[in-house]
Design a protein around this nucleic acid. Structure first.
Lengths: 104, 104
DNA sequence: TCTTATAGTTCAGTATTATTGAACTATAGA
DNA sequence: TCTATAGTTCAATAATACTGAACTATAAGA
């Protein structure tokens, strides 16, 4: 029964957010999640490609979670992930919207 | 006579830019440079604090340069650094302007 | 209930990056 | 030429990231 640790909105830092997004895989994961802004995706649904190690994927989700970019809840056998859109937009207005515009 | 290597505008990547800015020191350096958008600052003028190792500072400037965020030219004993504002704004319109708005 | 499958985490070893003191390079000025 | 200044490069260590293997938790079927 692993409970996920999420930083409070106030504890989200700019360097943390940018650092977490400074990786092509994590950018792709966030883009997939952002496409359904208030929806949820399991880790494997949000994976940028299928031939990547589960542990690697888990690692990247952890980094996104620790930076405050996503919220993870366990539902049955899956983890459901969603972007913390409102928190992020209050903390850093416009940031995610701009990043989301660009390709890759 | 060290010549600095700068990526072409086309070679600047989003993950590279975000990764380079995913560090408090480098964010501070960029902010100082951005305050005089088309001006130039030496490395020591742009240093976030004075009590950091010269080699560490040099390392951070290198990462910013390799990511395409700054251009460095040697002038006398000093290195002059400036933000590649136009290149970045053409490649990722609005990105730097948004990041610049936030504190820390 | 026992077994199997699914989804993901944790562990541990390896690989990559970051940090920093010491030595070095290049330029300017006395 | 000698000294000071500004920064780089090197080399060693510290900290993070990546990933295969083993493990945990839940669901569903026999």
């Amino acid at each position: 029964m692993s409970r996920f640790v999420h930083p409070t909105k106030e504890d989200i830092t700019l360097a943390g957010v940018l650092g977490a997004l400074g990786d092509p895989m994590r950018l792709k994961i966030l883009k997939k999640l952002l496409e359904r802004r208030h929806g949820h995706l399991s880790c494997s649904e949000a994976a940028p490609c299928t031939e990547m190690a589960k542990s690697t994927l888990s690692h990247h989700f952890r980094i996104l979670r620790d930076a405050g970019l996503i919220r993870t809840t366990k539902q049955g056998v899956e983890n459901l992930n969603s972007v913390r859109w409102d928190d992020l937009n209050e903390r850093f207005p416009g940031l995610l919207a701009v990043i989301m515009k660009f390709q890759l």
